[in-house]
């Protein structure tokens, strides 16, 4: 969908408390543009992802162009450019975790969530598993994130209990 064809039913994020929060944030920086990453986080926190309409709204409140904002969104891996599953699971498989068996944890997660492959949601839309680069918890293999929750020391054997605890 192009930005011009934005959904007319889109409800703005930056109203009420969010608007106040953004205005407070703007006092911290000498430019409006500097509030871009925090503003995008607010959109994702409220809506679960950053849509074209969200991009257009952020552009408007920060006096930027939608194209510029989109360029920034696509640079950073943590902004979701599409809706994600209820439990979005990001597993670290970079070298330090890799030597400790992180790939086996990924395989176990795919098996127990019913996800056919990495990045693809399970048929019930509950789970989505992706590999990510170093989560910075290399001494606690294998670390993963479920949405905003950070979980350490996941093993092949602990995967079923972990998934059960998410519901």
């Amino acid at each position: 969908m192009s930005v011009d064809a934005a959904d007319a039913s889109y409800a703005p994020v930056f109203t009420g408390a969010r608007k106040t929060e953004l205005n407070e944030l703007l006092t911290r920086y000498p430019t409006k543009m500097a509030a871009l990453l925090p503003a995008l986080w607010m959109v994702q926190e409220d809506r679960g992802w950053v849509s074209q309409e969200g991009i257009a709204e952020v552009a408007e409140v920060l006096d930027l162009t939608p194209a510029y904002v989109k360029g920034v969104v696509t640079f950073y891996t943590m902004y979701h450019q599409h809706p994600v599953a209820t439990h979005f699971i990001q597993v670290c498989t970079t070298s330090p975790c890799n030597v400790c068996g992180a790939e086996d944890v990924v395989t176990a997660l795919l098996k127990h969530t019913g996800c056919e492959e990495l990045g693809v949601q399970s048929p019930d839309g509950k789970y989505q598993v992706i590999e990510v680069e170093c989560l910075g918890a290399c001494g606690f293999n294998t670390p993963l994130m479920v949405n905003e929750r950070f979980i350490e020391s996941v093993t092949v054997d602990s995967v079923p209990a972990l998934l059960a605890s998410l519901d």
Partner: peptide, 12 residues
């Protein structure tokens, strides 16, 4: 003296 936390968004 102001100390502000700024959250990154996933980029080594």
């Amino acid at each position: 003296v102001h100390v502000y936390v700024h959250k990154g968004a996933g980029a080594y």
